[in-house]
Structure formats: C-alpha cells, structure tokens
Computed example of a mutant assay.
Amino acid sequence: MTRSEKLASWVADKHKNQLIKCTVLPYFDHLNKVALLAKGATEWGYETGLCHDLLEDTNTTSADLNAALLNFGYPEAIAELITFNVIELTDVFTKTAYPNLSKKERKKMESKRLQTLSPAAQTVKYADLIDNIAWMMKYDLKHAAKYLKKKATLLLSLNRGNEELRQQAMDIIRQELLKV
C-alpha cells in the first residue's frame, strides 16, 4: 500500500459515519473528488484535498494529522506543508468560535480570510467549489442561483492558486447560472 493509499484509508475511517448531505453516499466520496481534482493542479494537492475537511468535521487535530502523515512515510517537511494547508482550509469564523456574529458577518470574514490562503490551499479550495457546485445543482436548485453568484464573487478575489482550475470553476459557475 502506498503512503497516499494509507492516508486515504485513514481519512475514510475518520469520516466513516458521515454522509454527503441529501444522499446515502459516504462523505469520503466528496473528499476523494476534491483530491483528484487538486492532484495535478498543485503539489500535494491530492493529500490536502483528502484532508481538507478533516479538522472541522472530525475530532482529528492538526498534530494527529501531522503524526499520521509521518507514520505513512511522508517526509517531515511535506507532512508539515500538507498539515499547514489543511489548517488554512479549516473554517475559522464558525458559530462556535464567534457566537455573537451573524452568519452573514461570519461568512464575510471567512471570505476575506480565504483571500490570504497560500496558492496551494486556494487551489484545493477551487476543487472543493467545483464539487460543491455539482452537489448544489443536483440537490439544492432552490438556492443554486444565490450560491453560484456568491461563489463567483469569491473566486474573483481568490486568484493565487492554479489558474487553470480557477478558470474551470469560473466556467462551471457561468454554465450553471444559465440553467437557474
């Protein structure tokens, strides 16, 4: 088993009881799609994509992630880089952390924070948006137009990552907006 296969198995186990909203599909399917989209677009994109929701959706800590990566054979510098990218992709302005802020205020602050992400983390964010848009168009058409417009605005300011993947996300948004 390769180190990336070991990581994928570990991540799948961490998310084992989670399903993609409105489906019976394991949440790992979303993580794997994001990882595959990010794989060729940025260095260590596959690993970061697999882990991008790990810290906010499981009881895994950044130290746990780093230790697992080292255990699976990733060199220390690479394990630290992947862990850093995952930390960057973890929501900061949550309801728990900022209970006195409205959802709108938290989302605005989170959007500003996303603009500061490293190019690698922004690239994984593009991949995440692409898969989330596909979900939205299949399961929540009622809110799709508003969602797509917000994500189009966000992408205008997330311009540090892989330009091809960013353009793909923008093209998908444009195409999907024509349908709603």
Rank of each mutant, 00 (worst) to 15 (best):
K108V: 08
E176A: 06
K95Y: 05
S102P: 01
V34M: 03
K151F: 09
Y147C: 02
P26H: 12
A169M: 12
K39C: 08
M137L: 07
P119E: 09
K151R: 13
G40D: 10
N17A: 09
Y46T: 00
K125H: 07
I133D: 02
Y98V: 15
V11L: 08
Y27Q: 08
T61F: 13
K142Y: 01
T96Q: 13
N17W: 06
S4C: 05
H30D: 04
T116Y: 14
K108C: 01
V11E: 08
L177E: 03
I87R: 10
P99F: 06
I130K: 09
A145C: 11
S111K: 06
M109E: 06
C22M: 13
A134V: 09
L69Q: 10
L155A: 04
T94D: 07
S4P: 02
V34L: 00
H52F: 08
M1Y: 12
D29L: 11
A12G: 06
P75G: 11
D128M: 11
L50A: 00
Q122E: 14
L156N: 10
L154D: 14
S62M: 13
L117P: 05
K6R: 14
L31W: 03
L177N: 02
V11C: 05
T58C: 09
G73E: 04
N162G: 06
R113N: 05
H143M: 03
E110V: 04
T42C: 12
T116N: 07
R3A: 07
N85V: 05
L69S: 11
Y74Q: 03
E105V: 04
Q175D: 07
L50T: 05
I78N: 08
Y126P: 15
E164I: 15
L31S: 10
S62C: 11
N59S: 11
E47G: 03
A38F: 14
L155T: 05
K33Y: 07
A68W: 13
Y46P: 05
E5L: 14
C22Y: 11
K16T: 10
N17M: 09
G40I: 07
D91G: 04
A63G: 12
Q18H: 01
P26G: 10
I130Q: 02
I133E: 05
K107S: 02
S102F: 10
N71V: 04
A8N: 08
R113H: 07
A63N: 08
A152W: 12
L19T: 14
Y147K: 00
Q168K: 15
A8T: 04
D29N: 11
K95P: 00
V124Y: 15
F28N: 08
L114F: 01
K179V: 08
A12T: 12
A134L: 10
Y27W: 12
D131G: 03
I133K: 01
T123N: 13
E176C: 09
A120N: 15
I20H: 04
S9I: 11
C22D: 03
R106V: 01
E56M: 04
A145T: 05
A63R: 14
K150E: 13
D140K: 00
K125R: 13
N162E: 09
L148Q: 05
T123K: 12
T58P: 11
E163V: 15
K125P: 01
N85A: 12
W135G: 00
W135V: 00
N59I: 12
H52A: 05
L50H: 09
I133Q: 06
G45C: 08
A8V: 02
W44E: 14
I133N: 00
Y98I: 03
D171K: 02
E56S: 10
L7T: 10
N71C: 14
L37Q: 07
D91P: 15
A63S: 11
N66H: 15
